[in-house]
Design a protein around this nucleic acid. Structure first.
Lengths: 141, 141
DNA sequence: TTAATATATAAACATATGTTAATATTAAAA
DNA sequence: TTTTAATATTAACATATGTTTATATATTAA
């Protein structure tokens, strides 16, 4: 009983849910995740390790970078939850924003060929500009 | 996103999970629930209202007693979670103990014809004795 | 080996949460 | 109406949690 309660507790934080769903879309490293969800490095790191410890993620090291992704053989329980999340969030604002950011991140990396902290600071800045541009357009309309 | 996080938070407490699963078996009033899960009255009351506020329970008043049960038309989301819980807990120690207590409670009520605080204090005492008897038997075996 | 960089961990803090003890509310019985 | 009993709510407290800042670890490059 305690185990399931803890499973739910793991999923009771918006930042962790965001990371989980972003990784459900694509394997990513910490600095990419920082750029996508816009959270500090320690916060991303901490929440990733909580998700990993709970058995949702697996980790892979590649040089200095550490990649995370959804574990291949999730338990039935966790698979059910993932399906529930995909269904429930399919029209969620934050979720859709994050999915767009994953897309942008992939393109940004293809274009710049870089994957490091500095590149992702630039990526975040670029995204902010992109978003504010869209918002002012909306205001005009 | 925040909504689902809060849904999970609601389920991240063992006492709430116990109450939810007990009520999944049978509609019960607060004093019966106290006897079954062995928690204080304010604690039972509080957790019931949290579950009700989140949309898991519906309430019904009958004289001084207040009965709670699982809401009839749960959302798909919540139904999925209930099914998950039933599956995941089917062999859980605490869950099985609680289910036995529900059974005992029903019998106790049939036998005594009473449903009030005093009766349930006696019920709890009786259950404690029953359990300690069983435990000493196990030791002998 | 040293310097630089990506990630993890620790310390410190504020906030949130669960729990108990005390009190309020509500409905029935006297 | 007054009293009793069931449930709800509040206040107070301890613990847990999320967040930031600072620091440690580990890997690559110089």
């Amino acid at each position: 009983m305690k185990k399931i309660a803890e499973l739910f507790k793991t999923l009771s934080d918006v930042n962790r849910l965001r990371l989980l769903m972003v990784l459900d879309r694509k394997e990513l490293c910490v600095c990419q995740l920082m750029g996508i969800v816009g959270l500090s490095q320690p916060l991303v790191s901490r929440n990733l390790s909580i998700l990993a410890r709970m058995g949702f993620l697996e980790e892979r090291k590649e040089g200095k970078l550490k990649f995370y992704r959804i574990k291949k053989n999730l338990t039935d329980e966790k698979n059910t939850i993932m399906e529930l999340l995909r269904r429930s969030l399919s029209e969620d604002d934050i979720y859709l924003q994050d999915m767009e950011a994953v897309q942008d991140c992939t393109e940004f990396q293809k274009r710049t060929g870089r994957c490091d902290m500095d590149a992702y600071k630039k990526f975040m800045k670029w995204r902010m500009e992109k978003r504010s541009k869209r918002d002012t357009q909306k205001e005009v309309v």
